[in-house]
């Protein structure tokens, strides 16, 4: 009973702003995002609960990565707003951890694995301040947590794909965040890395942290995650995995039910030229 209370208390860390006790981890209000006038997200309205492992699932081009980027303020919103732990994004930066897609960076960049993880600590350093010994120690700890302790000095171009993904995860751990956003953390990794990453996600959950991950594998989604957002330009369904992971919902997400929306989007794009 006491243990349960503790884990519930952990859900509240870090303490949210006054009057926002019940605020969800992420609250997305009517968000629309467009690239070159082509809408990628339409009127997405979804609240993500705290302390869960949340998967965002949908077909290619469904706007999964864009939803993460919209929440993180990395793409301009055509309309709508996002709240994190009941606060606007600008006041919630220090509570956010981010794992971008592995392919988005140049892995021939002249830095070591430890240097990359250290970047996770930059958010708590002010302008012009260099990382100190304590930051290095913390970064080493995070590398060890993902089983990469022996690779601290290794150049990142000497790492395998799975190892690179672990380094990215370690960098997010170094951010020591309340909510982690991960873009396909399990894409193209070996089985051992997949297990290691899932173990870490679970321990984050037991520490009361929230994880929002774009996931591509329908086979494993109900095993690994406990909350699901089915996305295809709009939210098809969202909720606890047991109630959302149904054939009908999946068909709606992946099937041909969205042709009218597609056609409308295409017409809008042509009109905008």
């Amino acid at each position: 009973m006491i243990a349960m209370f503790r884990s519930n208390a952990a859900l509240e860390t870090p303490a949210p702003a006054a009057g926002a006790q019940a605020a969800p981890a992420v609250d997305v209000h009517d968000v629309t995002v467009a690239y070159h006038r082509k809408p990628v997200l339409w009127d997405v309205d979804v609240a993500l609960p705290r302390g869960r492992l949340i998967a965002i699932v949908g077909p290619n081009g469904a706007g999964k990565s864009t939803l993460l980027k919209a929440i993180l303020g990395l793409v301009p919103l055509a309309s709508g707003r996002v709240e994190i732990l009941g606060r606007p994004l600008s006041q919630a930066r220090s509570m956010i951890g981010y794992v971008p897609q592995r392919e988005t960076v140049d892995w021939d960049f002249p830095v070591s694995a430890l240097d990359v993880v250290l970047m996770g600590r930059y958010g708590r350093l002010s302008w012009c301040r260099r990382p100190r010994r304590a930051d290095r120690e913390a970064a080493r700890g995070c590398l060890a947590q993902v089983g990469m302790g022996d690779f601290a000095g290794r150049q990142i171009n000497q790492l395998s794909g799975g190892q690179q993904q672990r380094v990215f995860l370690a960098r997010a751990l170094a951010q020591d965040a309340a909510i982690y956003f991960m873009d396909e953390p399990l894409a193209g990794v070996d089985a051992a890395t997949e297990r290691a990453i899932i173990d870490i996600l679970r321990s984050l959950r037991s520490a009361g942290r929230t994880v929002v991950a774009v996931h591509h594998d329908l086979q494993t989604v109900s095993e690994y995650f406990d909350h699901l957002v089915l996305l295809n330009m709009r939210v098809v369904a969202a909720g606890p995995i047991g109630s959302v992971y149904t054939t009908e919902n999946l068909q709606q997400t992946y099937g041909g039910r969205l042709t009218i929306l597609d056609e409308a989007a295409e017409a809008l794009r042509r009109a905008g030229r």
């Binding site: 993180l72 303020g73 600008s90 971008p100 830095v111 990359v116 970047m119 930059y122 990382p131």
Partner: peptide, 20 residues
């Protein structure tokens, strides 16, 4: 002075932006 900021920007601009 801005070595840390510039190197972060050059390696991973989105991550830098997400950090604020």
């Amino acid at each position: 002075l801005l070595f840390k900021e510039f190197s972060l920007l050059c390696f991973d601009r989105d991550f830098a932006a997400a950090q604020g």
